[in-house]
Amino acid sequence: MNVFRLIGDMSHLAAIIILLIKIWRSRSCSGISGKSQLLFTAVFTCRYLDLFTNFVSIYNTTMKIFFLASSYATIYLIFMKFKATYNRNHDTFRFELLIVVSVILALLINHEFSATEILWTFSIYLEAVAILPQLFMITKTGEAESITSHYLFALGSYRGLYILNWIYRYYVEGHLDWIAVLSGIVQTGLYCDFFYLYITRVMKGKNLTLPA
């Protein structure tokens, strides 16, 4: 554990809590892509199957259980409890394509051709692109509530901080996992436009509206 990894995890945790608070307080999931949330739930489910086979630490286990439980709770809120507020007609990204491409890539490029390893690799590839339906939705509507943009900023920062963690681990511990690193770079890269808008608009107290 290093400081980049810890702040990254805390940023990830904050993102999930911000999203749950937004939905719960406003009794609405408007502006949130149910498809991105379904993809994140698939990511956690495939990656954290090792909860049953591999113990790392209390911290690791607690975080995994929280991420799994909160993602299923989010899905429940969007598709059941507050489904009347879900903007289905704006959430039109073809997310099946992301799943198919991630499955194929995981089968072709992995560290070891075993079920658990391929599921882990699939979760890494899918996580890299899972935010696309959400970003697509914002592009389509041209705006996002400020709490939704705080959510996205925390979620995007998390993988960026993991990149710093991987650089640190490479130099200090000699660890290098190209699958995680390259996917993390792609994942963080997808947020670049959003980061720019967040820093230039939301941080100055303006709403996140896309330039026409």
């Binding site: 690791n60 560290h111 963690n165």
Partner: peptide, 10 residues
């Protein structure tokens, strides 16, 4: 070494 790295991260 690789296995350790990814299994201890979230």
């Amino acid at each position: 070494v690789m296995r350790y790295m990814k299994k201890d991260e979230l």
